[in-house]
C-alpha cells in the first residue's frame, strides 16, 4: 500500500461516513419512506391539495422576492465591507452574522413587534396603507432577515481576493467604471453570487421560526409550507406531513443540483487544458 502523509484515512473516513449517514441520509430516507407509504394516488392528492398549493405559492414567491432583494442588498453590503474603511466597519461586519446566531423565533418576535399595526414602523406604515405584519410582505421580510448572511458571506471572501490590478488594467484599457464592474468584477463574482443566492433561497424555503410570528398564518394566503407540515404533524397525520415535506426536499435537491451545474459552467475558465 502507498505511504500516506496523514495517517488514519480509513478511520476518519469511516467515522464521517457513519455520521453523515446517521444524521443526514437516514432522516431523509425515513421521510421518503413515510411519504412513499401513502401510495401514488393519495400522495398526489395531498401534495396538490388547494391549501398545499397555496402554501407553495406564497413560500416560493416570498423566497424568490427575498432572494432578489438580498442579491442587491447583500452584494452592496459585501462591497462596502471589503472596499471601504470607515468607523464601525468591524461592528457592521459582526452584525451581518446576527441572523445566524439569533434564535429565529426571537427574530420573528422582534420583527412582529416593530411592524405590528401599533409598532414603531407599523404605526408609520399603516396610515400609508402598507401592511407588513400578517401579510406576505411580512413573510418576505422575515426571509430577508434570516438569509442575508448567506450572500454576504459567500461573496465577501471572493471580493477580498480580487486583484486590484484587474480593475486598474480595465481602466488602462479605457473601460468605464460601469464596464469594469459588469465585464470584469461581476463575472468573477458570479459563482459565489450563485452559491449565495441558492443557499439564501433554500434557507428561505425552509424558514419557520422567524416567519410564523409575523405571517398571520391564514390558510390559503399567509400560510407557509413548513407551517403546513407542522400543522399536519400536530394533527397526527404523519404521512401527509411527510408528503408535503418531501416537496420541500425535492425542491431543495433540484435547486442544489442546478446551482452546481451553473457554477461549474461559470468556473469553466479555471480548468487547465
Amino acid at each position: 500500500m502507498k505511504q500516506r502523509v496523514l495517517p488514519g484515512l480509513s478511520l476518519s473516513l469511516g467515522v464521517t461516513l457513519f455520521y453523515a449517514a446517521l444524521i443526514i441520509a437516514l432522516p431523509v430516507l425515513a421521510l421518503v419512506f413515510k411519504a412513499a407509504s401513502l401510495g401514488p394516488a393519495a400522495y398526489w392528492q395531498i401534495v396538490t391539495s388547494e391549501r398545499a398549493l397555496a402554501s407553495y405559492r406564497v413560500t416560493a414567491l416570498s423566497a424568490l422576492a427575498a432572494t432578489v432583494f438580498n442579491f442587491f442588498f447583500g452584494l452592496a453590503l459585501a462591497w462596502v465591507l471589503v472596499r471601504y474603511r470607515f468607523p464601525g466597519r468591524r461592528l457592521l461586519d459582526a452584525v451581518v452574522d446576527l441572523p445566524f446566531a439569533l434564535p429565529t423565533a426571537v427574530a420573528g418576535i422582534a420583527l412582529t413587534t416593530l411592524f405590528a399595526p401599533g409598532g414603531w414602523f407599523g404605526h408609520v406604515l399603516d396610515p400609508l396603507g402598507i401592511r407588513v405584519a400578517y401579510t406576505p410582505l411580512g413573510i418576505m421580510l422575515a426571509m430577508c432577515f434570516t438569509s442575508l448572511p448567506f450572500i454576504v458571506r459567500t461573496v465577501q471572501p471572493v471580493l477580498e481576493e480580487l486583484d486590484p490590478a484587474l480593475e486598474e488594467a480595465g481602466q488602462s484599457l479605457g473601460a468605464s467604471d460601469r464596464e469594469i464592474f459588469t465585464r470584469v468584477i461581476l463575472p468573477l463574482l458570479a459563482p459565489s453570487i450563485l452559491a449565495g443566492l441558492s443557499l439564501s433561497f433554500a434557507r428561505s424555503l425552509g424558514e419557520f421560526g422567524a416567519i410564523i410570528f409575523i405571517a398571520g398564518n391564514q390558510p390559503m394566503s399567509t400560510e407557509i409550507t413548513a407551517l403546513l407540515v407542522f400543522i399536519r404533524l400536530e394533527e397526527y397525520e404523519y404521512q401527509a406531513a411527510a408528503a408535503i415535506a418531501s416537496v420541500l426536499l425535492i425542491t431543495a435537491f433540484v435547486m442544489l443540483a442546478l446551482t452546481n451545474i451553473l457554477q461549474r459552467r461559470a468556473l469553466r475558465y479555471m480548468q487547465r487544458g
Binding site: 486583484d163 484587474l166 486598474e168 488594467a169 464596464e179 463575472p187 468573477l188
Partner: peptide, 25 residues
Amino acid sequence: FVFQHYALFPHMTVADNIAFGMRTA
C-alpha cells in the same frame, strides 16, 4: 500598461483579453 503579474482577466479567453480595450464604449 503591463502589470507585474499581468492582471489578465481570468474569465476571458486570450483573444477576449486582447480585444477588451477595443470593445469599450
